[in-house]
Write a protein that binds this DNA or RNA. Sequence first.
DNA 1: CACCACATGTGCAAAAAATGCACATGTTTA
DNA 2: TAAACATGTGCATTTTTTGCACATGTGGTG
Lengths: 299, 299
Amino acid sequence: MHMFRMMQRSLPPLNALRAFEAAGRHQSFSRAAEELGVSHSAISRHVRGLEDRLGVSLFRDLPRGIKLSRDGRAYLGQVTAALDLIAEATEGLGGSAEGVVVVSCEPLFARKVLLPMLDRFHSQYPRVEVRLEASKALADVNRYEADLAIRFAHTGVLQVASDLISDTPLYVYAAPELRPEGWQSPKDVLEYARLRERDANLWPRWAELQGLEAAPFEAHGWRISADLALEAAVCGQGVYLGSRDCAQMDCDAGRLVRCFDQGVRDGAMRLVQADRASRNRAARVFRGWLLEETADLRG
Amino acid sequence: MHMFRMMQRSLPPLNALRAFEAAGRHQSFSRAAEELGVSHSAISRHVRGLEDRLGVSLFRDLPRGIKLSRDGRAYLGQVTAALDLIAEATEGLGGSAEGVVVVSCEPLFARKVLLPMLDRFHSQYPRVEVRLEASKALADVNRYEADLAIRFAHTGVLQVASDLISDTPLYVYAAPELRPEGWQSPKDVLEYARLRERDANLWPRWAELQGLEAAPFEAHGWRISADLALEAAVCGQGVYLGSRDCAQMDCDAGRLVRCFDQGVRDGAMRLVQADRASRNRAARVFRGWLLEETADLRG
DNA sequence: CACCACATGTGCAAAAAATGCACATGTTTA
DNA sequence: TAAACATGTGCATTTTTTGCACATGTGGTG
């Protein structure tokens, strides 16, 4: 009579499923771990847990590595299809968004980080127009003519809610030809003009972290506008202390090299929204996209 | 040059996705929470987190309740399809399994719990034959002729690895016609023969939990074989103290009623595997299925 | 054959995520 | 006006996930 039983779908642990799917595709726990950015141990546990719960062996253990079982192979195909479907649906989400979003950003970050990735945004959201304004003004975002503002800030300073965009440490960079023999000792940098990205002089702090006296680094030879310092470094005009996010591009292109492994942490780039931004679809989409795109600049 | 970027699929948090999907289907966080067996707060957080991450509003907040947004509706369809696909694939997993699994089980549990659900197993795994043997023997499963054994045990007693199947508390049950005026005071039970499921007499413990003196409950009027006591209760031969799992079926059918809300916890049914069982596909499949099927008997 | 690189399993403690609770807000209904 | 809903949120707690370091077992190499 009341024996009805809502036949509700019973799903396996979805995160374990994702682990299995990656492992199956790669035929390797280690490579799956790499793809998902976790340790092989995590994958191993997920997969074993899934097998345990489903009551079937998904993989057969080989002496060296693993191999999908019959069940596993059949399952993998369907799971992959399902996850692909989700990925596509997620990708296409908001793809119909249209409108304009005005983004105000510090010049260096805009030029070195934002601009190079904007084309990806445009191909994903072709009907959203991004107006990127490079500006140092810290103006109140709600008065200023912008939906979103990307600003440098020390932790705890910003009063408004904001999203962390990048907190990469600052490193020492130089053009490769500045010192072809390479950088052995931190003292080497004293032979060159010391350029810096930040208004605050972080050279002394860096020196201390390297076990050097800070005093010689207090002196500021000459100081050029922050966003030009990096270009100066590229031209071989000195050594440069700046954040990895902005230097990465020139490093990748071989125009700069990182001289030492020692980094300095100081503040972060943060995203502030105008109140009205949450009602602007284009702005919401841009924020979501940006947070995803810059995920590797945090942590 | 090295600007290649493995365009790897980026998936949203899958558990949040499941929450969203349920919420979308029900058009209600509360009902979704109920379906997934969590609080509405959990759903709320999952959905908001997902919206936050995707950068789109999935729901519009109504004064009373919620409503899918345009994006949300489009997304829901695809996500539901994907999860259905996963559910189906999971369901069908091992469907091709064939073989025989011998399950040894205490008689009462076999009759009242296992047997009624076996038809579901057979429709899912038509080529697996289950030989259910009702037996009290606690024989070493590895000598005994069974792949799996379901046994009663107190926690920590079993030396071998085992899976918890059911730890439902024991309650007092009686045929509805035994006392048509209903059960007001725990003392009422003293007017009737006290039947019990377990060899150990748990009546005194139950009495103490109810704030009564244990002494009058020590006396054991008569004691019949455990698995018959329940049938005796159904026939109106007395009040019965037994575990919910086994009594549920007769309760649902109206042949028994639970007299008091007070329950007693004592031991649990556990599943023991023969060593060879892990190599028997049918046994693995049965174990997985059983653990899923009996999930509501635990916790 | 010794030895190293490789691939996965596992105990344990640390880190992160999910959850429930209790209460807040705002709305509809009686 | 009160009560019932439906969802949002701070906070403490629980649960899950994770990485690490080490174990095991294999295949290749000199």
